[in-house]
Design a protein around this nucleic acid. Structure first.
Length: 419
RNA sequence: GGAGGGAUGCCGGAGCGGCCGAACGGGACGGUCUUGAAAACCGUUGUGCGCAAGCACCCUGGGUUCGAAUCCCAGUCCCUCCGCCA
C-alpha cells in the first residue's frame, strides 16, 4: 500500500509511481476516492461525537427524562448509520483502488522498461558454449528428467535425480550456511499461506495470476518464501535495538508462469516448482539503502563462490514489480545462449509491504513503519542450469564446484552412457 | 473427524450494558533515600488518525441497543479430551 498522504502532498512521490507502469487515470481516481473518504470520515466523526454525548446524557439523566432523550439520540443514530454506510462504501472503493497502485520507483532506478536497466558492473570472463546446453547435459547425465515429469505433472516440471538431487541439497546448504554467517536467522517457512498474507506481502491483487490456489482458494502456494517471512512480524512494533531483523528462508516455491508460454521451455530454466533460499530484512527506513547494498553484496559473494561470471543490473522503473522501489538483479553468463540471464534478484520494498502488514519500529515519539527488503540467496533449479554449463568438462563429465564439495562429498561425476 | 473451554494493555489477571482506554498485581522507566546497589516509598507507563475539538481500537467481521470489553451470530487462532495419522 502506498502512502496516501505523501501522494497528496508530494509531487515527487506521484512521479515515482508514474515512472512505473500504471493504468491511465488510476492515480487521479485514487486521489478522488481518498478525498471523498476523508470528507465522509470527518462528517461521521462529528456525528459520532454528538451521538456519544447524547447517549452519555441518558445514563446520567433521571429516569423520567430518559424517554425524550432516547428519542433524540435515536434520531442521531439513524442519521449516523446512513452516513456510516456511505463511509464504508467509500472505504471499500479507496481500498480497492489503492491496492492497485504500485510503490513509487526510487529516484536512483533508471527510466525505461525491460531491457533498459543500468548495468552496474560486469565481473568475470565469459566462456564459450559447452558441447551440450544445460538441458541436454542434464539429461545425458541422468540429472534431470523432464519427459517423465511431463507425464506426471505437465510441462515445466522436473525430476531432479542422482547426483543432480544431491547437488540441489548441497546448494541449499551452501546458501543457507553463507547467509547464516551474515546474521540471517535460518527459517523453514510454510509453503501455503492465506490470502491476507499474500496481500500484505505485496503480491495480491496484482500478481494473483501467478499463484496457485489450493483448497478452494483458502490457501495459496508461495512463489517465494519472502511472503511467509514478511508475515513473521505482522502487526508488531519492533524496538530500535531489534532492527535490523534478518531471516533466511528456505522453501519450495510454486509459480504458474502465466504469460510465459514458449519462453525458456527447455530444461529447468523456468519451472513451476523449485527450491529457494531467500534473504529477508526488516530495517529502519534510514538504513534500507545500505541494507539493500548489503544483500546485493552477499548475493555476489554466493555467485562468485560458485565461480560464475555475472553482471549486476539496476532494474529500470518500468520493469519493477508493484512492491519494489528499487531492484538489483544479478545476471550470470549462460554460455549456450551467449547471454546474461537472471540468477538472483533483490528488492527494496521501502514501507510498501510494511504498511499493509502493520510492522513498525518504536521511535522517540510514536512509531514508524519499517522498511522490508528481500533477495535471492539461491534459486536452486536456476542455479543448476548455470552449473551444468560452466562445470561441464571437455570429456563430458561434471566437476563439482569447490564450495559445494563439503556438502556433496563427491568431486566429479563421469560422463555416462550408464544411465 | 467428534466433544468441550478460552482470546482483555509489556506480562499475569479483573471487569454489573452507561461511572471502562479499562481495577489489581508484576515488569519497565523517572524520582526520594543510599558512598553505590538492594529494600522501602512517590510518580510515570498502549496505539492509530487529526492542527485541534475529537474519533477509533479489549482476536476479526457482522448484529441487537439511545449506549457494547460486557448480549447475539459468523469466522480465526489457542488449549483439553476422543478418534485418525508421518
Amino acid at each position: 500500500m502506498i502512502d496516501l498522504k505523501r501522494l497528496r502532498e508530494e509531487p515527487e512521490y506521484r512521479r515515482g509511481i508514474e515512472r512505473k507502469r500504471v493504468r491511465d487515470g488510476l492515480i487521479d481516481e485514487v486521489l478522488e476516492a481518498d478525498a471523498e473518504r476523508r470528507l465522509l470520515a470527518q462528517e461521521v466523526d462529528g456525528l459520532r461525537a454528538r451521538q456519544n454525548a447524547a447517549s452519555k446524557e441518558i445514563g446520567n439523566a433521571p429516569p423520567g427524562e430518559r424517554p425524550a432523550k432516547i428519542e433524540t439520540a435515536g434520531r442521531l443514530k439513524d442519521e449516523l448509520s446512513a452516513q456510516e454506510k456511505e463511509l464504508q462504501a467509500a472505504d471499500a472503493r479507496l481500498r480497492d483502488l489503492g491496492l492497485q497502485v504500485p510503490n513509487p520507483a526510487d529516484a536512483s532506478a533508471p527510466d525505461g522498461g525491460e531491457d533498459e536497466g543500468e548495468i552496474v558492473r560486469v565481473v568475470g570472463d565469459t566462456p564459450p558454449p559447452p558441447p551440450l546446453d544445460h538441458a541436454g547435459f542434464a539429461e545425458a547425465m541422468g540429472f534431470v528428467d523432464t519427459a517423465r515429469a511431463a507425464e506426471a505433472s505437465g510441462s515445466r516440471f522436473a525430476y531432479i535425480m542422482r547426483e543432480g538431487a544431491l547437488l540441489e541439497l548441497a546448494l541449499v546448504n551452501y546458501a543457507m550456511t553463507a547467509i547464516v554467517g551474515h546474521g540471517f536467522v535460518p527459517v523453514v517457512t510454510p509453503a501455503l499461506v492465506r490470502e491476507r498474507t499474500m496481500e500484505e506481502a505485496g503480491f495480491f491483487p496484482t500478481d494473483r495470476a501467478q499463484v496457485y490456489d489450493v483448497d478452494d482458494g483458502e490457501l495459496f502456494l508461495l512463489g517465494t518464501s519472502e511472503v511467509a517471512l514478511s508475515a513473521l512480524h505482522r502487526a508488531e512494533t519492533f524496538t530500535p535495538e531489534q532492527l535490523p531483523a534478518r531471516y533466511g528462508g528456505y522453501s519450495t516455491c510454486f509459480r504458474r508462469e502465466a504469460g510465459t508460454y514458449g519462453k525458456d521451455t527447455r530444461g529447468i530454466f523456468r519451472v513451476h516448482q523449485f527450491d529457494k533460499v531467500e534473504m529477508f530484512s526488516f530495517c529502519a527506513s534510514e538504513h534500507s539503502v545500505d541494507e539493500h547494498e548489503r544483500i546485493l553484496a552477499i548475493e555476489e559473494e554466493i555467485v562468485t563462490g560458485l565461480g560464475l561470471p555475472y553482471r549486476v543490473v539496476n532494474i529500470a522503473a518500468g520493469d519493477l514489480g508493484p512492491a519494489a522501489a528499487k531492484k538489483f538483479d544479478i545476471e550470470a553468463w549462460l554460455p549456450s545462449e551467449r547471454a546474461y540471464r537472471e540468477i538472483t534478484s533483490c528488492s527494496n520494498y521501502t514501507d510498501y509491504s510494511a504498511r499493509r502488514l502493520g510492522t513498525r519500529v518504536k521511535r522517540a515519539a510514536g512509531s514508524r513503519l519499517v522498511h522490508t527488503l528481500n533477495g535471492t540467496a539461491v534459486a536452486v533449479s536456476r542455479m543448476l542450469v548455470f552449473l551444468f554449463e560452466h562445470y561441464q568438462q571437455p570429456d563430458g563429465s561434471f566437476e563439482v564446484p569447490d564450495v559445494l564439495r563439503p556438502y556433496t562429498r563427491f568431486t566429479n561425476v563421469v560422463a555416462a552412457e550408464r544411465r
